[in-house]
């Protein structure tokens, strides 16, 4: 082995070791790295009332109710469960039925999610309005908000709040 080959091997080995170490750290931390929890997780695994966390999913069609004084209630679902959210404040422009949202707050004793922040989440599809309209007209529309997956590549119990 020449000196150059030896250096190259050393760099490769050090890099691989570091990569594995970092991968393990990220794997162990993946339930705190996720930005939000899906409604199906919250429903199936349960979160104690008063624990602050973020809830992300799609605003269910027909669920948005405005009560005046900037109070809105709506249901956030992901196909596997639904959580009703109450929010007081201005909603982002992109907020509408079928849109992805991330809300932050706490569950109250009745299971209502009282949010103090609502952020809109858009998906990776971009197209002009005419194309979107044409797709909807022909029944080919399949982009209703971003897909919501459970916490990470694997299912994790909810043990800690996201904060």
């Amino acid at each position: 082995m020449t000196r150059k080959q030896r250096r190259l091997t050393l760099i490769g080995a050090a890099g691989a070791t570091l990569a594995i170490a970092l991968g393990l750290v990220l794997w162990a931390m993946s339930d705190t790295i996720v930005f939000f929890r899906a409604p199906s997780q919250v429903v199936s695994e349960g979160v104690a009332p008063g624990v602050r966390f973020r809830l992300g999913g799609l605003v269910e069609a027909g669920s948005v109710e405005r009560h005046g004084d900037q109070v809105t209630t709506f249901a956030v679902g992901d196909g596997g469960g639904t959580v009703t959210v109450r929010y007081r404040g201005l909603l982002p422009d992109l907020f509408r039925e079928g849109q992805g949202v991330v809300t932050e707050g706490r569950l109250d004793a009745t299971g209502l999610f009282v949010a103090d922040t609502v952020l809109a989440r858009h998906d990776e599809n971009y197209m002009p309005r005419e194309v979107a309209d044409a797709l909807k007209e022909n029944g080919l529309w399949q982009h209703d908000g971003p897909a919501v997956r459970p916490a990470a590549a694997r299912d994790l119990p909810i043990t800690t709040p996201t904060q």
Partner: peptide, 21 residues
């Protein structure tokens, strides 16, 4: 792709081709 984020997933460099018109 690994964690859910507020940021959208990739639109151009993705396995099933770009999702931009």
């Amino acid at each position: 792709d690994w964690w859910n984020t507020l940021h959208q997933p990739a639109s151009v460099f993705r396995m099933d081709g770009p999702t931009i018109y």
